[in-house]
Design a protein around this nucleic acid. Structure first.
Lengths: 230, 230
DNA sequence: CCGGGCCACGGTATTCAGTACCATACGCGG
DNA sequence: CCGCGTATGGTACTGAATACCGTGGCCCGG
């Protein structure tokens, strides 16, 4: 009844107006007016007109960074898969909101460009992480890290966009399969190979994640025979 | 003695001022003033303040499109390599100008974002081309096309940035090697395999390019045994 | 009940990018 | 000399983004 906080009202008003009149045809004043706040308040909550569409990219970056940080050499690829799944789940959780955003970014090139720039920041995180993981400071390893990061992000985006278009009933399964396919492209680095052929490697570790969220990775590691080997 | 055309004077003035005061600290008026023209003239030659740094991305896009268009199914991967080399050569030909631009994009996030958006457009071209080439309309092929395009572009960017930083004495060789590495990651699609084992496939075609520019691709096709096979 | 600090908010003014419109000068063929 | 196209300059306007200031609520110790 009363009112949700200004931040929410502003976002609601923005999406509504963008739907009605289009992005360029909507001024920040319009948004502030409909939200019942002053123009100043808008910019207090969102750095720019575009930012109202992409509220929490920074938080998402932190999420990825954290997930990657909690990994050892042998669990690096699992961490990558997990981080990718994390991002996907974030959007899936947004539900209809993510789809409205997608509709906007599909039409307005300024927004599409901004989205792409954000994705590039994810990619950078992955690139740096993978390069560290490889250890090898040679130019060839650096190139491979870059390619691998690009492939990882491309796979994620592909599945995400499919879900956004309503073409994917089970995006989590799809992204796990896609990641499996991507990681299979790249042979494992120097790493100490565990034992010989056959058998199962058990890795014990502690994480803040739900077991459910981890299961797909575990299953893939055990069944797929991939994740490290070729 | 007289004066170079306004377009050039504007670009010179812009780069000079960006070096002196920085990008944000330079207004379009400043640039126009130093170039000795009116503010209107600036916007007649460049759509925006950022565009003065990236004059010919559209032309570059056309270049890629054209090169990809002049290819058959069996020469598709050569076309991709060529197109990538084309882009790299474009920047290398710019020489110091490209390096000044790189210095700017490294410091100013707005410019970096725009650069990234441009690269995404190249990537899209490659993605569509590769998807067409694969023919296969299944979701799995579509994913692979996306990953492949991302890998191709990542390889290019990697080499380009190395050259921009002065770390690559022979970027063309490097990019050819990088492309070779990338394409080797992906098994060939359905395509009709030519003959059996051994032998050499000769493909005759006509192109507007210098033979020198094509040689590396040819050599790779003959020697590497890759470009299609695994 | 009362100051005092904190904080969210609103309003005003300013800068600057980008667009629209109009006026002018130059070159060139009729 | 006239007509025409083109490059240019100037002026004015919209709108995003920033800076600054004032104000009203709200909590808290007195």
């Amino acid at each position: 009844m009363s009112k949700p906080p200004a931040r929410i009202r502003l976002a609601d008003a923005a999406f509504a107006l963008f739907d009605e009149r289009g992005y360029e045809q909507t001024t920040v004043d319009d948004i502030a007016d409909r939200a019942g706040v002053g123009r100043t308040t808008f910019f207090r909550h969102y750095r720019s007109k575009e930012a109202v569409i992409f509220p929490d990219h920074d938080r998402l970056l932190e999420l990825i960074r954290d997930r990657l940080a909690t990994s050892s050499h042998s669990t690096a690829l699992v961490a990558v898969s997990d981080a990718v799944r994390l991002v996907l789940l974030h959007y899936v959780d947004e539900g209809e909101l993510a789809r409205r955003r997608y509709a906007l970014t599909s039409k307005v090139s300024a927004l599409r460009d901004r989205e792409i720039a954000s994705v590039a920041r994810y990619q950078r995180l992955f690139r740096e992480f993978i390069a560290d993981w490889m250890g090898d400071p040679t130019e060839s390893a650096s190139l491979r890290a870059e390619i691998m990061a690009a492939a990882v992000v491309a796979a994620h985006n592909h599945v995400l966009r499919r879900w956004l278009r309503g073409e994917s009933p089970d995006p989590v399964r799809e992204v796990d399969e896609a990641m499996s396919e991507v990681l299979a492209l790249f042979p494992a680095p120097s790493g100490h190979e565990d034992g010989g052929a056959g058998g199962t490697t058990v890795v014990a570790f502690r994480t803040g994640q739900d077991l459910d969220a981890l299961l797909p990775s575990l299953r893939r590691l055990v069944e797929g025979g991939t994740g490290a080997g070729h």
